[in-house]
Design a protein around this nucleic acid. Structure first.
Length: 785
DNA sequence: TCTTTCTCAATTTTT
DNA sequence: TTGAGAAAGA
């Protein structure tokens, strides 16, 4: 990856003329008359206009946080207090950065477009590191490692240190090291006690070894992008001073999500001028588990004495009932700065709570309610289903598929994380940088070239001994008798290909080079020959991948983009229900929000409770608060009394959060109407599922319903043993009688191949497969043949 | 070296 | 129940 000089003014202090005429003209206007700030409420205006000194903006959900941030930037530029390149503006996600750029552009026109220092922590860290790489032991074209590279590297280090990978898996140790990096700790700064606590006392040594490997590879992982900035600044005060002077104003979005490293990073930069404005909401801090420190926001006034604190409490998003529910809930948290959201909107519909017998019925009810909304012309794109864990999605998706309800999953596997894309990228990375060992290892036997572990071991040993990259080692080894003839031939082919491809770079447009590489390496053919269902999709992805390269000036720029951004342009527009985790929902809003799975153990999640105790519970509660505040008009909670966890049915109790909602804002619904009629005959049956009715959670739910008859009337049906089996049987019977298979019939099964029917039992067949032996299968999976 | 079978674990996830 | 990753078999 090459460093791309930034023409938009990264070094702009030398060219002050870049302030546009329009901006200068706007600067002459009195601020209160400026168009960009019209329509701000008094608090927002205060947050925008308090430009000097430290400012903390506590912006509750839906109070116009982004508006304040962008207007503040516009204000700084329009009043001439700062030029675009004087402002450092950091966000967490690329999406937020993009949105901010867009909105600033809309406010002040092209003058804001060249904001070179608006970006994610990591993007800005990268930019800074590339300029001073040699001061921290890297070259300016260092590679940025993704998570899978990181894992591969970690495995090697573990192997080197002779640590049992079963006791200390690479994943676990990787996250320990990440944790240290998040806290701004270099290997030598890790407290000895902690360094000893992992991997048989070798935790610290492992970290050092890992960093050493990174340095030899001329690579940095995500944590390094910040950590090495800290190192750079601490060891080179002159460099730090340069940046302290350069950034006259600093703005931080989502401050509650900053970790210690980011906090230190900001504090170093802000130390001199102290013009730092942090915007955040302690009630929306939901990333504690990956190092975010709510304390950063709780401590702001202490760290920056004399800080102006502005509270944004006017909510422009949700109706009264939704806001009341969310506020009532979050008020149960003890560690918070405290805000009270207000709205002038109508109370609207109450938040609904629905109980279901099991998660399947919950999903069914969900589908039903969405279809009802759909019939009332409610756009699907304004409906979201927010779940606590991704595992909840499957059942819901199944239901949507059955109903033919269009939906999209947000935050699934990202484009650049797909295997085929990572493979393609690996080919390009080695072509661009022959020293990229991790990329080489990824694809040297993909597609299959008969090169396996044994060959890799030989290459590794040689490359270590000679201190050269693996590709260079390969080049030498194929001239010796080190490898078996077959492996040598295959390796020679590969090495020669890379030499050839490297020559193409620069000579041909880079997307064509990529196309050539993918074809000549046999990679595309590999997928063309693949018979599995998703092969076609993968080929499609590869095409899209090559196409997306055209947007970049050269291969280096493309690879840099990919390593930092990891997401492809989204296809917007279609009218679909959105399905995502609560975490992924932060920052989004919808007219109607469904919140299924509010059961103790699932939400609040047991693991969060076990691992972090009260702090964990509070974070879960904040998550609930985030979920509720996503809704503009309707929030619909539900829980199931039985849920399958890891394939086993467990009985569950409603979430304690349900009880914490202010009763006035909540309406407890009976089970879905479609279920009532069929279930009524079971109403007189006593407690069909034993203990559940007597549990505290159930009683809480009953008490909350006011009438105390919650659940009883809908009678979760005396379907003892769970509805699944019964339903399964019903299905079996209804189709079973019509089974068109008979004994001795020849059949074909997509997985087991051809076979002969040995017995028929309803829709279940016992088949003697020619290859797979005797199996019991459902008739719908076989064809007569 | 490639393929099949088995074992074991199992939030949340951006950069 | 499902999936990934490792051991065992071909």
């Amino acid at each position: 990856m090459k460093y791309q000089p930034d023409e938009s003014g990264g070094d702009a202090p030398e060219q002050p003329a870049s302030l546009s005429i329009a901006a200068r003209a706007m600067a002459s206007l009195r601020p209160e008359a400026a168009a960009y700030s019209s329509g701000l409420n008094p608090e927002q205006r205060r947050a925008v206009e308090a430009t000097e000194g430290p400012v903390l903006v506590l912006a509750g959900a839906g109070t116009g946080k982004t508006r304040v941030l962008t207007t503040r930037i516009a204000h700084l530029i329009a009043t001439g207090k700062a030029r675009p390149y004087d402002i450092l503006s950091v966000t967490f996600t690329n999406k937020a950065a993009r949105e901010m750029k867009h909105r600033i552009g809309a406010l002040i026109g092209p003058a804001g477009e060249g904001m070179p220092w608006l970006g994610t922590f990591h993007a800005i860290g990268t930019k800074i590191l590339r300029r001073h790489a040699e001061l921290v032991g890297l070259k300016s074209d260092f590679t940025i490692l993704g998570m899978d590279d990181q894992l591969r590297l970690m495995k090697q280090v573990i192997l080197d240190q002779n640590i049992d990978e079963k006791r200390w898996p690479a994943r676990a140790l990787g996250s320990v090291i990440d944790g240290w990096k998040n806290r701004g700790l270099l290997p030598e700064q890790v407290p000895p006690g902690e360094a000893q606590a992992f991997a048989f006392g070798k935790g610290g040594a492992l970290y050092s070894a890992y960093q050493a490997r990174l340095a030899t590879l001329n690579a940095a992982d995500f944590g390094d992008l910040l950590l090495l900035c800290l190192k750079l600044w601490r060891e080179n005060p002159d460099v730090l001073e340069n940046y302290q002077n350069r950034f006259r104003y600093i703005l931080v979005d989502e401050y509650q999500d900053t970790n210690v490293a980011q906090y230190l990073w900001l504090r170093l930069l802000a130390q001199l001028r102290k013009n730092v404005c942090c915007v955040g909401d302690d009630d929306q801090s939901i990333y504690g588990w990956r190092g975010a420190e709510v304390d950063n926001i709780l401590r702001f006034e202490h760290d920056f004495p004399g800080a102006v604190v502005v509270r944004l409490e006017r909510n422009y998003r949700s109706t009264g009932h939704i806001l009341a529910a969310a506020s009532g809930l979050i008020a149960k948290n003890e560690s918070r700065l405290g805000k009270t959201l207000r709205t002038e909107a109508e109370p609207g519909e109450q938040v609904t709570v629905t109980g279901a017998w099991d998660s399947e019925e919950e999903a069914r009810g969900l589908g039903e309610e969405i279809e009802q909304l759909q019939r009332k012309q409610h756009p699907l794109s304004e409906i979201a289903v927010l779940v606590r864990i991704s595992a909840q999605m499957r059942e819901i998706e199944d239901r949507f598929v059955q109903l033919g309800l269009p939906y999209r999953v947000i935050g699934g596997p990202r484009f650049y994380e797909r295997a085929e894309i990572r493979d393609a990228l690996a080919y390009l990375r080695i072509t661009a940088n022959p020293a990229d060992d991790l990329a080489f290892e990824r694809i040297f036997n993909t597609p299959k070239r008969g090169l396996g572990d044994a060959t890799l071991q030989v290459l590794h040993a040689y490359s270590r001994a000679e201190r050269i990259p693996i590709l260079a080692a390969s080049r030498k080894i194929i001239e010796t008798d080190e490898l078996k003839p077959r492996a040598r031939t295959m390796l020679r082919g590969l090495v020669e290909s890379f030499t050839r491809w490297a020559r193409l770079v620069g000579a041909q447009p880079h997307s064509e080079v990529a196309q050539t590489i993918l074809e000549e390496s046999g990679y595309t053919d590999m997928w063309k020959k693949d018979r599995s269902a998703d092969a076609a999709g993968r080929l499609e992805n590869l095409k899209e991948f090559v196409r997306s390269m055209e947007e970049f000036p050269d291969l280096g720029a493309f690879l840099e983009h990919v390593s930092l951004v990891m997401e492809a342009s989204e296809t917007e527009g279609a009218d679909r229900v959105s399905l995502m985790t609560l975490h992924a929902a932060k920052g989004l809003e919808f007219d109607t929000v469904f919140l299924p799975g509010w059961e103790d153990g699932l939400f609040p999640n047991q693991r969060a409770l076990d691992e972090s105790g009260r702090a964990g519970l509070e974070e879960e509660r904040r998550l609930a608060h985030v979920g509720l505040t996503r809704a503009r008009k309707r929030a619909k909670l539900s829980f199931a009394v039985n849920r399958r966890i890891h394939g086993m049915w467990n009985s569950t109790i409603p979430s304690r959060f349900i009880d914490e909602l202010p009763p006035g804002a909540v309406e407890v619904l009976d089970a879905p109407a479609h279920f009532q009629a069929g279930a009524s005959r079971f109403d007189r049956n006593p407690t069909p599922f034993g203990s559940s009715y007597g549990t505290p959670g159930w009683q809480r739910a009953q008490a909350n319903s006011g009438g105390g008859n919650f659940g009883a009337s809908r009678g979760p049906s005396g379907r003892s043993g769970g509805p699944r089996q019964i339903e399964g049987e019903l299905v079996a019977k209804s189709t079973g009688s019509a089974s068109s298979f008979q004994e001795q019939m020849r059949v074909f099964h997509t997985k087991f191949g051809p076979g002969t029917v040995a017995a028929v039992d309803g829709n279940k067949l016992t088949v003697d497969f020619d290859k797979a032996g005797r199996k019991m299968v459902l008739d719908s999976f076989v064809q007569p043949g």
